[in-house]
Design a protein around this nucleic acid. Sequence first.
DNA 1: GTCTATAGATCGATAGAC
DNA 2: GTCTATCGATCTATAGAC
Lengths: 207, 207
Amino acid sequence: MISSASDAKRQAILKAATRMFLAQGYRTVSMEKIAQAAPVSKATLYNHFDSKNALLAGVIAETCESLLQTMTLIRIDEGDMESTLNKIAASFVELIFSEKALSIHRLIIAESREFPELSRLFYSTGPQAALTQLAENLQQLKNKGQFQDVDSFFSADVFFSLLKGDLYLQCLLGIKPLPATEEKQRWIEQVVSFYMRGMDTTTWRNK
Amino acid sequence: MISSASDAKRQAILKAATRMFLAQGYRTVSMEKIAQAAPVSKATLYNHFDSKNALLAGVIAETCESLLQTMTLIRIDEGDMESTLNKIAASFVELIFSEKALSIHRLIIAESREFPELSRLFYSTGPQAALTQLAENLQQLKNKGQFQDVDSFFSADVFFSLLKGDLYLQCLLGIKPLPATEEKQRWIEQVVSFYMRGMDTTTWRNK
DNA sequence: GTCTATAGATCGATAGAC
DNA sequence: GTCTATCGATCTATAGAC
């Protein structure tokens, strides 16, 4: 059995490493500084994580898992299509325009060359999981007759891409502050309105 | 007057640094290796660029300028809206799904924390310039009566965001190979079709 | 398990000869 | 301007005491 004291140190290391990697990046943060912040000795750090790379993998996995839990599960049973889309949009926008999500995204892209397996882990447990979930929701809306498309995955892709927009790039680059609540609300309304016109079944049938 | 031999060395340094930074990232490439690849001595390298940061700035500026020239100027005088959009889309997709553009994008995001001024340089001379140009084109289409929207900038944002889609993220993460010509063509058709439905003036007026 | 101390390697930047 | 040689700092990872 592993002692709880050792477990506590491990958690302290992970917490410190997560905070510093997300805030300052992988390269600029040394094992020395992480050990100091934990606070543990460098030898203890290496007892829990074989290498700096292994520590990064632990940080990525834990952060992705944590972020996924913030994506609210949407019930599509109640309400019409517009209200359902609005709920999904609000949950998605709240997630991607958070400092934590943007930071992990930057970190992954920066290290994607040297750790391609981390990129796959991030994509499958993050963006891809969200896409799949939305595609399933759209499929259910389709079965209820509120909606008609040819490819639910394309429809899901379109919806999330619209919700990102150019604003997401600006936030990712750090050249624009995160949008305030009202700003996000207005953005969602614009996008959902545009999306529903594009998905309108009457115009769709005229294709 | 600066000797042409010195100028040639400067160009050789920039070329080597660009290639290595884009392929391997900023941190992993040392001044030593750049000097060897140029090939010049490290002292000569520092004679042309005061620091590694200054060299990075030179690489970014030159690469952004080079990439912008590949964006074809679109004439909206001739042809209908769909053919115009298709031309713009083809030019945009060809640009963003190129190895060079993806590499510079990764590099900028990776270093955006420490060099925010480089992020602004990249955004204004890259994505923002493209957005502004498209917004102006849409404005002209609007004036010709082929098109009607409330905010040309929003319409431009939507168009480019759709063309990126989830595929762009996968390419940026390096977990998917660049799309082939036919794949890009099919993608553009899907997106333009969806976009034109969303922008359809009859449904728009019914708002 | 945890600590201090340090090995071993690499890096950015510079000094001095030509 | 260009070169060789090197400084000083920092990094990852480990050895050995407790």
